[in-house]
Nucleic acid binder design. Sequence first.
DNA 1: TGGTCAACCGACCACTTAGTCGGTTTTTTT
DNA 2: AAAAAAACCGACTAAGTGGTCGGTTGACCA
Lengths: 204, 204
Amino acid sequence: MDKNLKRMATMHRMQTKGLELFYKKGYYNTSIDDILKELDLSKGAFYYHFQSKEDFFVSIVQNMVVRKVYNLMIEPIEGKADPVTAIERCFENALATAEHNELDYGFVLGNFITEFNGRNQEISKYLKDIYKVWEVNLVTTLQKGKTDGFIARHVDSEGVASFLIASYMGIRVLMVEGNSRMLGYNYMQQIKQYLKSIAETQLV
Amino acid sequence: MDKNLKRMATMHRMQTKGLELFYKKGYYNTSIDDILKELDLSKGAFYYHFQSKEDFFVSIVQNMVVRKVYNLMIEPIEGKADPVTAIERCFENALATAEHNELDYGFVLGNFITEFNGRNQEISKYLKDIYKVWEVNLVTTLQKGKTDGFIARHVDSEGVASFLIASYMGIRVLMVEGNSRMLGYNYMQQIKQYLKSIAETQLV
DNA sequence: TGGTCAACCGACCACTTAGTCGGTTTTTTT
DNA sequence: AAAAAAACCGACTAAGTGGTCGGTTGACCA
């Protein structure tokens, strides 16, 4: 326990800086040395803790990226009674976080999925798994929303879930370096309208 | 005119192969040599025609990427009387093309925007410009749709336009290597539902 | 005090990268 | 056919790249 403290601390420092730079510059465009330089650590330290650059990245995905997505996108919705309100609030909050971050490079998970799509099957799998967890959670919440009378019966929960995720990923791409404030606001208006159309009360 | 024929032919061969590989593997993960190897051309030939890798990529964006987006996403909608039907058909066709392409790496424009976001301002600008042309065209068509009685007056055309683009970009990311058939189908169902909600006939 | 070992160092290796340049081939012009 | 211009070749450079490895440090224990 106590013994592993230093080990964990260093690994965590590397992972944090690694995620920062991979997110900022992309995986293939970020070298191990880039990361180590900013931490005043050496190659030896890196390869003492991680087997390879890929192994390092996987560890980041499985620890930090998972947590980020979970905290920001899944937890705020999971099991909530009224899915419509929960999703609205969650997305609104997520976009606001992105807007207020002056250095925004897009949605972490979305960026990585794009970068590895068709280029690295193994890493793609880990990333897609996170997406799937998110999707399943959304579907479950939406289904529960049906039985609780918040969502119309005819709604295809899986369709709605992937549509929501896709639209969010897309808007986060466009929000970088644009007038993200306006884009985010407009996006939320449309999402609200869309969500209305799947809500129980507005059944045709 | 005639003089430039060989020049144009070689440049075009390079650009075509360049776009193919940049799209497949990403810009930073594709070397000039990768491209030249497949064309049986040399470094000399490349730097005779292009100033740098970046200059080369910009020329690809301004010629081929622009045209791709225009042909597939803008032209089929531009100026059409009924925007709702036009957008539906256009997106359906675009997704079908993606599905039937066994080697799909996502939406070309979306991938590049993601890769260069926050990494290369100049290139980002050229990519964003294409997005803007697309957006403006959508807005114009939607506005015309209002006066022609296809779109409800209260609709925010700009919001709808960026929402449509964002959702399309997002779903194209998810469709890679997944069960893209199902995803695409589900996506279209949701888009149709959403479009219904902005159509004139269904005004609340 | 001396030994042990996890944690870390940094020179080094084989390889790839974008870009250069003197020279050769091919095509066009005269 | 000769000269001129355009197109192309490929060895080379300098700066990285991921990864290795023999060696050092310093905390901890006996």
